[in-house]
């Protein structure tokens, strides 16, 4: 279980640009939860994920991952528990290394890097079998530099890499937003499959309301650095876009919904 207590983050504190991005945010994530996160531009979704991952340090608050207090832990230490797929397909992989070399790096997430061989023979067949499940033909290109892959292929690979060592929490930040609609759909379906097969606890930011409704077992909505809606269980299962819109209006802030969320 991941529990977040009274999180605060302000950028440029005590300047005219002061920006309170996360204010008093608390959240409990149960094991196996697949939570979709929506909210308008600048609501603080990415910042929340960055705070959880440790790539930005919090001002105040506590984060526990299975009773381990990671609040002060630096990013690369926290990586033992958390894996991520970013919005930019270039962010999750190293373009100068081959597919198998990238996978070997992910295979050692959270482990100390030694002067042992970076990739063992036995790993290669394992990776080949895993790549086959992506059905993108990558299993025959183990030695190809990742820089040669398309954005969708890179996201699919990043997703696979994120689960080579099962994380306590998988963070996905609009990981299909940079892809064309068809590829985005493929990667989303792949996400659902991988999450289900590995029973991964997942936090997925999306700007697409339909996706937020269709995927996952729980939906949270952020506004101005707070969680303003948290829908789970049966209610989440039967949720429609219309329901969501009504709930938003009831919460009394018209700015919550950006145009982007209503498109498509």
């Amino acid at each position: 279980m991941i529990s977040i207590h009274n999180l605060y983050k302000t950028f440029h504190a005590n300047t005219i640009n002061e920006n309170k991005v996360i204010t008093d945010l608390s959240l409990k994530i149960e094991d196996g939860d697949f939570i979709t996160v929506i909210g308008g531009n600048g609501a603080g979704k990415s910042t929340l994920l960055n705070l959880i991952a440790g790539s930005i340090m919090m001002d105040e608050g506590k984060i526990f991952i299975d009773d381990v207090d990671v609040s002060k832990m630096i990013e690369n230490k926290r990586a033992k528990y958390i894996s991520r797929v970013f919005q930019d397909p270039n962010s999750g992989t190293c373009k100068d290394l081959s597919i198998e070399e990238n996978m070997s790096i992910a295979k050692r997430r959270g482990k100390i890097r030694t002067l042992r061989k970076g990739i063992l023979k036995s790993e290669k067949s394992e990776y080949q079998n895993l790549l086959k499940t992506l059905d993108l033909g990558l299993e025959n290109r183990l030695n190809a530099k990742v820089g040669l892959l398309s954005g969708g292929q890179r996201q699919a690979l990043t997703l696979l890499m994120a689960t080579l060592v099962k994380p306590n929490l998988l963070l996905l930040d609009e990981h299909t937003a940079a892809l064309d609609p068809k590829t985005a759909k493929t990667v989303l379906e792949l996400t659902e499959k991988i999450v289900a097969e590995n029973k991964l606890t997942t936090l997925m930011v999306t700007h697409n309301m339909k996706d937020a409704i269709n995927y996952g077992n729980r939906l949270i909505m952020m506004n101005k650095g707070k969680i303003v809606l948290d829908i789970k269980g049966e209610e989440k299962k039967n949720l429609t876009v219309n329901d969501l819109l009504i709930r938003f209006e009831a919460s009394g802030d018209d700015n919550i919904i950006s145009d982007r969320m209503l498109l498509d």
């Binding site: 991952a53 790539s55 990013e75 690369n76 230490k77 990586a79 033992k80 894996s83 991520r84 970013f86 270039n90 962010s91 999750g92 992989t93 190293c94 373009k95 100068d96 290394l97 070399e101 070997s104 790096i105 992910a106 050692r108 997430r109 959270g110 482990k111 890097r113 030694t114 002067l115 042992r116 061989k117 970076g118 990739i119």
Partner: peptide
């Protein structure tokens, strides 16, 4: 080596290598 891969990855994408611990 494992460490050598990490240096190469740092040069082309330090975000990725930190995310991998």
């Amino acid at each position: 080596t494992e460490f050598g891969f990490s240096i190469i990855a740092t040069g082309s994408n330090d975000q990725m290598i930190r995310a991998n611990g």
